[in-house]
Design a protein around this nucleic acid. Structure first.
Lengths: 210, 210
DNA sequence: AGACTAGTGGCACTCAGTGCCGAAAGTACA
DNA sequence: TGTACTTTCGGCACTGAGTGCCACTAGTCT
């Protein structure tokens, strides 16, 4: 029988990796802009055929995302490992923060990636599909905690609300150079806990509460 | 001087309207599916050239939306006309409900349109751009009420949160045949007001509050 | 009639994405 | 060393969305 340990796999070895291609693409997108970079450009810059690139990534829009599925798996298992004494919102808030933690040397890359994802229209659109997967992770956890169906209205709203808070924090993060993403996330998530109770948001305009 | 009243405009009269094209496209999408309907199909079904269709709508993805910009203008002016004694969340909740009110005979069309927009991947993606415009209307109003910048974190989160509640209600509406969209919207919006305070959502799992 | 204006649509082009299929590069076993 | 098998690679041709260009059509104005 065959050994499936490190090198000795069956067929031909892959020429590159998803991560490598993602980096090459990201560099080109920053140099020339997303729309003015063709898939051919990326493929030849990476030294592979165009047809091969489409086996690593299903679309040009997926290139900036890298291996997002793996990140989702991480988040799902983090949530699964959360102690059940932690409240639902706290559990999700911790998971969101954990999901967006990365080594400081990665910051410039991550910043540029998110800059593209939140500003290039084609990517903003495509990201909706990724966000939907992310929301599903959140909704699934919430549904389990609330003991209701995943497609009930509460878990769905919770998914949206946490997504919105995360992206609001990201937009804020990108707007200023020296801001701390984690702190911004925490403050956005805090808004969710405090916001929609009888605080300032629920009061009327000038004189509404006076 | 020229008369700009009803018929006597300057050049050639348009052959059709955005609304008419949107209806033709919607019918074909339901018959054959979105992906299996080409722009040529729609153009010839509408009796115009393919090139002309792209002057009415910038992309195939925009066809189901019809004249969304006009709807946004409606929502913006509804918000502007809201009495300042009404609280921010109530004002937005009323506007959201008003935005989604339509004559009952339109229900089947609207249902099918939303079915496409929320289920066809290409449309789910593209809709993110439309939702962004919608959120901007909400955020702008919230920023004015809270006396902060539009790109501050609070108005952004509020935009997301109301979008999420609306779409959660829509998903629920589509799931069952005889449901009432307005009621679902109201219950989703109620979640926002009650949800993230020390209610059930903030408590721990089994035994967290007992 | 002639000038002007706005909508139409054919043509050719770019680019993303896909199906097909043979070639390349590796392993397993004789 | 050779043959079988397995997996990746990538060229080619095709579909379909979206765009620039330009001539044409159908109106109005003087």
């Amino acid at each position: 029988m065959n050994e499936c340990s490190v090198a000795p796999r069956m067929g031909r070895q892959p020429l590159t990796t998803r991560a490598a291609l993602s980096h090459v693409a990201l560099r080109l997108f920053l140099e020339r802009g997303f729309e003015r970079t063709t898939v051919d450009d990326i493929a030849s810059a990476a030294g592979i055929g165009r047809r091969t690139l489409f086996r690593y990534f299903p679309s040009k829009n997926d290139l900036p995302w890298g291996d997002f599925d793996a990140e989702l798996v991480r988040m799902r298992s983090f949530l699964a490992a959360t102690d059940t004494t932690v409240s639902l919102v706290d559990a999700l808030a911790q998971a969101v923060v954990e999901f967006n933690r990365f080594p400081p040397e990665e910051a410039p890359f991550h910043r540029e990636r998110m800059n593209l994802l939140l500003n290039v229209p084609a990517l903003v659109a495509h990201s909706a599909l990724r966000y939907a997967e992310w929301r599903l992770v959140v909704s699934n956890f919430a549904a389990g905690r609330l003991r209701v169906a995943v497609d009930a209205i509460e878990p769905t709203v919770i998914g949206w609300v946490f997504l919105g808070a995360s992206l609001a924090a990201y937009e804020q993060w990108l707007r200023t150079d020296d801001s701390n993403l984690i702190e911004l996330l925490e403050s956005a998530l805090l808004l969710l806990k405090e916001g929609f109770a009888p605080g300032e948001l629920a009061t009327g305009g000038p004189g509404g509460r006076a």
